[in-house]
Amino acid sequence: MFALPGANLGSRLLMGTARYPSPAVLAAAVRAGRCEVVTLSLRRETVGGRHGGAFFELIRSLDVHVLPNTAGCHTAREAVTTAEMAREIFGTSWIKLEVIGYHDTLQPDVFGLVEAARILCADGFDVFPYTTDDLVVGEKLVEAGCRILMPWCAPIGSARGPRDTHGLRALRAAYPDLTLIVDAGIGRPSHAATVMELGYDGVLVDTAIAEAGDPVGMAEAFATAVEAGRRGWQTGLVEPRDMAVPSTPVIGKAVFS
């Protein structure tokens, strides 16, 4: 069981909802991925409200938990206002807090992030901060009231996978009791399995599924990988060794000369 504030989940795969070829494929992928939490955003509505309304109804039909994000916000003030508007629409205290610091890499502005997290936590939000694996930033977010951290493993949408497993491992070791979810940069099911084997509680995947040749099949592959990685973490992984170690017993080996 995977516990998030107010929810006990069977799946540790969180999915984004952007970049899918169609709403129908998105819906099928969410089901195939056995996903129970999806992220979405808020954007300016067109006159008549048709775009947001159709998407809103689609998400409702999936019967999943909604994790709104503050994607695109570049200041703490923008992110706080967006979070408040998301709470107004979705009636959830969850917010995936993003404060972007650098345009090309979509790297989080960790200073604005901590500032916004402090405001939102004090206002009763359950903040899921999109951050780096920097331990000092993690500490500041915890001091701000966060009980969940969402470090990237590579830039958003890059599909590069974990660039620094040592950093992710250190974050896990530093915060054994926090919920840690890798947010950005996952490109393949094996990437998801890798971070789950590090003891992470979950992964959030969007582009790697949505832009796959077969998003529905890829969602299923990610679900399997996340479960495999988690099971590996739980059952005691053998650490790498510098030299070969025979797996077949040496005792009793025949001597022919």
Partner: peptide, 9 residues
């Protein structure tokens, strides 16, 4: 600002 739900990651 008038906002509504939109796809997101």
């Amino acid at each position: 600002e008038v906002l509504s739900p939109m796809q997101g990651g």
